[in-house]
Design a protein around this nucleic acid. Structure first.
Lengths: 312, 312
DNA sequence: TACATTCCATAGTCTTTGACTATAGCTGGT
DNA sequence: ACCAGCTATAGTCAAAGACTATGGAATGTA
């Protein structure tokens, strides 16, 4: 059985006339007759009684019509949902993000995204980079926001923006200045993530460049926990500046710029190389960049009126 | 879009592998690849991501799958309902019958029919012959049970059985014998149907043959009403013997055989010549004959034990 | 009754399309 | 680095659908 036959069938059932039906489906009358004939032959019974002037459904035809109509409607809808997806009018996007990035970027990003694509079902999971990669490989995530570089056979990354890292010290700790050299870290007790975390590796490599060996007094996996430990005076830490600023708990902490060199890392979009990224994913990545640009310009020059609206 | 493509699509979605899917739908792998490719091209997006080992649905594919599956199921059901109809496992049968026939034949007929085809929806309308013909022409009825002969351009008839007509007289009326000649009718007040009814025409023609002119004292359209009028002594009438026997109200009536000649008429099945008669209609007609045969053998030889079961 | 019209079915021709085989290209595992 | 497994492409062939022309039945009209 073919969809064509169902369409022709419905046309005849509607018009009760082969010739009119043929015009309606844009084929010649013989073509339509043959298709209906074939359908009837296949089913083993007549679907229409040809009564001189009119053509009417047999009982078999009536029963058949119910399901033929539904089948055609489902086919139509199958097309429709895909087209809506392409137009980003519907769909689903599951994003994995680093919890640090999650804290300051995701909230404004999500709100912008939802504004533009209200019917895309969005899910955001805060996870460490390794879990994001696993999630992508297992198809649990559509895209991830990770630290770069990330080299994995099947994962492609696109740099989105850089994060500056800053030294975070308890208010009680006397650093004595607003800026610190990387070398100065050698003298501080540090609270860092475990060795297999990206952020820790990054810190280690920066320290190595500066020729210092950090004194790690506590390892914690969550940046949230680290901040709390720092606030209680356990030690200092190094975290993305924007992250800390987004949740600075009533200035119990000092944020101290690092330089010589300033540690930075690149945040990027990650996705399975062969996996088809939907419209929604593309848009999400684009919004990611513009949102970040806005955040950084607000952060680096807070008193300056780069954004007139706010300054006024 | 073609049903073939939906089937192939579902196979790939199920097996997550083109080659296996191809085996499953009994085509070569390239054929299947091409069809999927065509479908994706038509929809304007990938439905599957080909990840080396596995093949997984894209988001578009997932949305598409829902409706594709439903569409295929509807097509399957469309076939199914027709096949069930052919096997008379379901369906509908609307029958028009003469009210006289209706009274004695339909009850046992319907019960037998329902026994054999419990899922056929049966509807029986008692109507005069002319209405039955109209009903057939207007497709309100599937088949009709009428008096023959009935000649109409589009209606075909099949004789089923003969009905003997008998003289029905009120108990009060003194006929003096169990049998009466047609000629005897001339002396009786008669209650008959109006002139445009088949039964009346039939009586008229029988009378004409016998050379008598009936004295009609009352015309009524319903045989039921006629019987009541007769019971009250308004006059005698001529009705199918079986009909009267089926509803003899506590022997207030005499049933008198007519002879010389015995008036009879033929009851037959009528249907639109070009209309396709379903399995149910065929079976109904067949049951009609056998049921009638049983009724007549019970009626003509009530004391004799033609049906051993009863006699014992 | 005969004629004109309408409508569906059939015949014959042509183009499209789907299926097949063989093979290339890529991936993943040994 | 090679082998095994999988999908995509190329090329050929046969089936199927569409079209035009026409036949034949039924309907309505002069």
């Amino acid at each position: 059985m073919e969809l064509r036959q169902l369409e022709y069938f419905m046309a005849v059932a509607t018009h009760q006339n082969f010739s009119r039906a043929a015009e309606h489906v844009h084929v010649s009358q013989p073509s339509l007759s043959i298709q209906i004939g074939g359908l009837e032959k296949e089913l083993g019974t007549r679907l229409f009684d040809r009564l001189g002037r009119k053509v009417v459904l047999t009982q078999a035809g009536e029963l058949f019509q119910v399901h033929a109509e539904r089948a055609l409607r489902e086919v139509e809808q199958a097309e429709q949902v895909v087209h809506e997806l392409l137009g980003a009018k519907r769909g689903r996007l599951i994003v994995g993000t680093l919890s640090t990035v999650n804290s300051y970027l995701i909230a404004p990003l999500v709100s912008r995204f939802k504004l533009r694509f209200p019917n895309i079902h969005l899910q955001v999971h805060a996870q460490p980079s390794s879990e994001i990669v696993n999630g992508l490989l297992a198809n649990r995530l559509d895209i991830g926001i990770c630290l770069l570089p990330l080299t994995h056979a099947h994962v492609t990354t696109i740099p989105l923006f850089e994060e500056r890292l800053a030294l975070i010290a308890p208010a009680s700790m006397n650093i004595g200045k607003r800026r610190a050299r990387m070398q100065d870290l050698a003298q501080l007790p540090l609270v860092l993530m475990p060795a297999d975390y990206c952020l820790r590796k990054m810190v280690e490599s920066e320290c190595a460049k500066a020729g210092v060996h950090p004194q790690v007094v506590l390892e914690m996996t969550s940046p949230e926990g680290i901040l709390q430990a720092v606030a209680e005076g356990t030690g200092a830490t190094i975290l993305p500046e924007l992250y800390v600023k987004s949740r600075l708990p009533a200035s119990q902490l000092q944020i101290i710029d690092l330089y010589d060199p300033t540690p930075r890392h690149t945040v990027g979009l990650a996705y399975l190389t062969k996996r088809h990224r939907g419209q929604a994913a593309e848009e999400f990545a684009a919004l990611c960049e513009t949102t970040m640009r806005d955040l950084q310009s607000d952060s680096t020059q807070p008193p300056r009126n780069k954004r007139k609206g706010r300054a006024a």
